[in-house]
Design a binder for these strands. Sequence first.
DNA 1: TGCAGGATACTGCACTCTGCAGTATCCTGC
DNA 2: GCAGGATACTGCAGAGTGCAGTATCCTGCA
Lengths: 221, 221
Amino acid sequence: MRDLSSTSFGILGLLAVRPWSAYELSKQVKRSLAYYWPRAERGIYDEPKKLVAHGLATATTEANGDRTRTVYTITRRGRAALRHWLREPSAPPRFESEAILRMTFAENGTKDDLLAAIRSVREHADVLRTRAEAIIRGYAEGRGPFPQRVHINALTGKFNISYVSMLERWAEWAEELVMTQWTDTRSPEGFPGAMALFGAMLDELTASATDPMSDRMDVRR
Amino acid sequence: MRDLSSTSFGILGLLAVRPWSAYELSKQVKRSLAYYWPRAERGIYDEPKKLVAHGLATATTEANGDRTRTVYTITRRGRAALRHWLREPSAPPRFESEAILRMTFAENGTKDDLLAAIRSVREHADVLRTRAEAIIRGYAEGRGPFPQRVHINALTGKFNISYVSMLERWAEWAEELVMTQWTDTRSPEGFPGAMALFGAMLDELTASATDPMSDRMDVRR
DNA sequence: TGCAGGATACTGCACTCTGCAGTATCCTGC
DNA sequence: GCAGGATACTGCAGAGTGCAGTATCCTGCA
């Protein structure tokens, strides 16, 4: 049982919603879980097999002409294992961005290199926003798949928007700042406003820590 | 040269700032890069060796009693390779959170399981906030290490705050919502406000897309 | 009727990275 | 004199990725 990963339980969670084939699972992971649990298609194909080996799912092979497809269904033991997993503590969140890594070493490159890195963050966020918007629009108009899960999707949907908006806002801010105020990447003289910014950030940090209202997340912004 | 990863170039970027030992590098990665390029200590020890093998760094072994430490220094070829890497396109950002994955399958568990997952996100964000605050305070008060990099650190520092604040705000919002409005995890009847939330999210999305001012990132707030 | 192109349905392989355990020395304070 | 934390690493099993490769099925169009 110890060779089941969080990814395995993610797949098990999808199987708790309905039966899926591995191909469908890989698409569904990309469509919905990818915002906070991104996994390559390749890995998804191995997971249901592990679940079957542990008795948490069963596989049924359907003939479709010369081609077969294997559909996986959760078992009673699978539901129990999922319930148990939900009680366990979670590893901390993790974010990675090659573009921001490159930005960190911008002093070794040109202003254009830096702007390209910042823009790539925004472009990626825009793609995610478009996808999220389509799904949220569907639910808002009552056309969402899995209407029985709408209460949970409201929480994850809100997270997805928060995440994407954060990336967009930061990237817009950084792009404009670099475009209008930076003359040189090499030294702080190329951007004289830097120290003032640290002061403002500190104010921001202490303000949100002491004044709870400034930090509230409204439904509308 | 193709067996150098982005992590290798991240280490090379640090070596462009000053020489470090592998131990120091692993601490520095945790202290500063971890917000957007988290890597296990284990891996950091292998990277400078690869850089030396490619002629991008040199190693000097210092005796310190019975124990030796190896200090790595960037070479001219190393600086050229870093410059070249900065011009390359970046992989998209990536976020993962086991807690939010668990939240996605909350229908299979209790309200307490769900609240624990949401709280763990906030607790992690609080730890990150405290660390970021110390570093930002240092720079704001002119005590930061690497004052020659203050202009770049303003950009990364602002990102770190945005990221941490996003996690905190979302987690606070979700925690309060679940605590005060959810009665049951199993079905949408346990949270009647779900559909209204989707409507609000859609408004939010279209508002920020059409009204550029609502999306600006102020220095304060 | 034929054929292109996209969707479906996977597998093999090399490689990166992680987490854990293990080894050992140095230094500071009590 | 000794505990405990910091310094300084290495080995290994396993998770996950990215790419290439192999096929079949289905739809639209010429």
